[in-house]
Design a protein around this nucleic acid. Structure first.
Lengths: 342, 342
DNA sequence: TTGTATGCGTTATCAC
DNA sequence: GTGATAACGCATACAA
């Protein structure tokens, strides 16, 4: 097995000094054309590639963006990554993705690993467990060490850094308003437990919309789902003997599951019950009937996050102590699940 | 902004040498308890973390596995990553994920970047464009440089390295057999163009199953879809005026799209047409009717790939010049789309 | 035109 | 017990 070739080896083989090789490879005017050509040919032949590790050590820069997401098997997050990569590539940055798996410990490990030499800055959405623990020391420390951090989607208010979010409450309000404008009177919400920040905000938007239409908020129309993997039974139980004519679900899975249950209960979507889901993903698009959703424009979020981060990264000296919160607009994607027309 | 603290700085502050600090932090017996404690306390206070870059440079090891996949927004691939991470974590390796976006160029860039210092080995599934170009020099070079590579799913026969695959042909045969055993006589296949290796293999399995039941292979029942993003129109056209009673689709999207089109044509799944899809993902699970699938056990694939890679990585000296191809069993997941019973 | 020396952060070896 | 030094691979200021 060939080992990777280094400047040193080239220098030795060609009987010149390391710096000559280094300069020649950079096409420096200092070196004679002859030597340059000779060295370049040799290097090419042996497929020389500068060692990134050494470069990073020297430059204190890796030209790499670290992205940490709670779940890799999740359409929304991967969409965001798509956006990050797009901008990063344009600006000559590499993207390294790590998954925290919603575990606090893994989030800490990943951050420390990337922070100690593998990335120049972070784009991250915090793990569920971290939100629950409210322990953000690892993020704070990273920021303190001078590494820029951009939080997205699941952000932490206490942390002073750039953020990219959507107006969850407003999106939820739009969704609920849409149902209300279709004439729905009994709108249920399928949401998460309150420690999930986005769930809480979306619930708030739902209530706000109801108030806007002077509709009474009924506790029995609110379902806070604890165990997402087992939401089916919870939703089933919840929908029994309830006379809802509209459902707003804070994610696709809840919406789809509800639709399936309604189906079993012989209630038709959208004729009997209209359904809107937060998060526009692949499930909503392909479900029958296709689901009306609130699109979070994940790719867009990723792009903006990457821009914010790279701005900070390149702003070296001026040390822009200015932190921005970008709010991405949501939009309503109308599909069959709310088409009242025949 | 605090900068990250180094051994050097600690040494200076405490007025000892760098090596003393280094040893103390490793709890070396050489250093007196007193000094050790003092140094450790100080380091802890300033949140000292060894710089990975420097360590990698020294050790020529990064303890990191590079994973390159064709698409990050793809359920199957992210599932595989889940498996890789599980094993990697157990063995103390980090996982870095990069997406080639099905682009040859990006695949090359990502590989070179990770190969030149950021990862010890690779787990990769080649980009579509790479398969089309049949240009594998970047992978071959990586292997030549002594970095272990494990190919999975979309593998390249010509490359000598470890591989984790499923028996695509056999899985397709199982799927088709299932349809045949239900009594289907006119089974169509929705597949990809031939340069996609897995598509080709699955088509082969389909034919093999037909022959096993002495059923004539009809060209007009085979649809090779060119443009996946626009498969709807192709499938629609294809299914018109065709009297099929079974459909085998090489992926979820084709299956779901076909089911929706059948729906429009007032044909019922499974009563009129039974449907089986390759790849078990969330679409199949949540579609109505839920789809019978061939599960590729992506997580399992990831686990095996990680094991193979780590074995090679830790086998340093013996230079195991032995390359293994692991074949993951597929299994049939029966759901509503093939339930003939009433 | 080419080469030498230094430093990036760490560890291991060897000297004191 | 502690410290000096070399080495990992590279770039660069400075000599020659």
């Amino acid at each position: 097995m060939k080992q990777k070739i280094t400047l040193k080896q080239i220098a030795k083989e060609l009987d010149v000094s390391i710096s000559t090789v280094s300069k020649a490879l950079k096409d420096s005017e200092e070196i004679s054309i002859d030597t340059r050509e000779k060295i370049k040919a040799f290097a090419k032949f042996y497929n020389y590639k500068p060692n990134n590790i050494a470069l990073s050590l020297k430059n204190k820069k890796t030209k790499t963006i670290g992205v940490i997401i709670p779940e890799i098997v999740h359409h929304f997050f991967t969409t965001v990554i798509g956006g990050v990569e797009k901008i990063a590539n344009e600006k000559g940055y590499n993207v390294i993705i790590c998954s925290s798996n919603n575990s606090f410990d893994k989030e800490v490990i990943n951050m420390e690993m990337l922070a100690s030499g593998s990335a120049d800055g972070f784009i991250l959405s915090v793990a569920k467990e971290t939100q629950l623990k409210k322990d953000y020391h690892h993020i704070q420390e990273t920021i303190n060490q001078g590494m820029p951090v951009v939080l997205f989607d699941r952000v932490i208010d206490e942390l002073v850094c750039d953020k990219v979010i959507i107006d969850d409450a407003k999106g939820a309000q739009t969704a609920t308003n849409h149902l209300l404008s279709l004439g729905c009177k009994n709108i249920a919400i399928l949401t998460t437990v309150d420690y999930i920040s986005v769930g809480k905000l979306r619930t708030r938007g739902y209530f706000r919309a109801l108030r806007g239409f002077d509709i009474e908020e009924k506790e029995e129309l609110v379902l806070k789902i604890e165990d997402i993997d087992n939401c089916e039974s919870e939703i089933d139980e919840f929908l029994k003997n309830k006379n809802v004519d509209g459902i707003f679900a804070v994610n696709e899975l809840f919406a789809v599951t509800a639709a399936k249950i309604l189906n079993k209960q012989n209630k038709k979507v959208p004729q009997d019950v209209a359904v809107v889901a937060f998060t526009d993903g692949i499930l909503s698009k392909h479900f029958i009937p296709s689901l009306t959703t609130i699109s979070q424009h994940g790719e867009n979020m990723g792009e903006r996050a990457a821009m914010l981060l790279i701005d900070k990264l390149e702003d070296d000296e001026t040390v822009a102590e200015e932190y921005r919160t970008v709010i991405i607009d949501t939009s309503l994607v109308e599909r069959q699940s709310t088409k009242k027309a025949d």
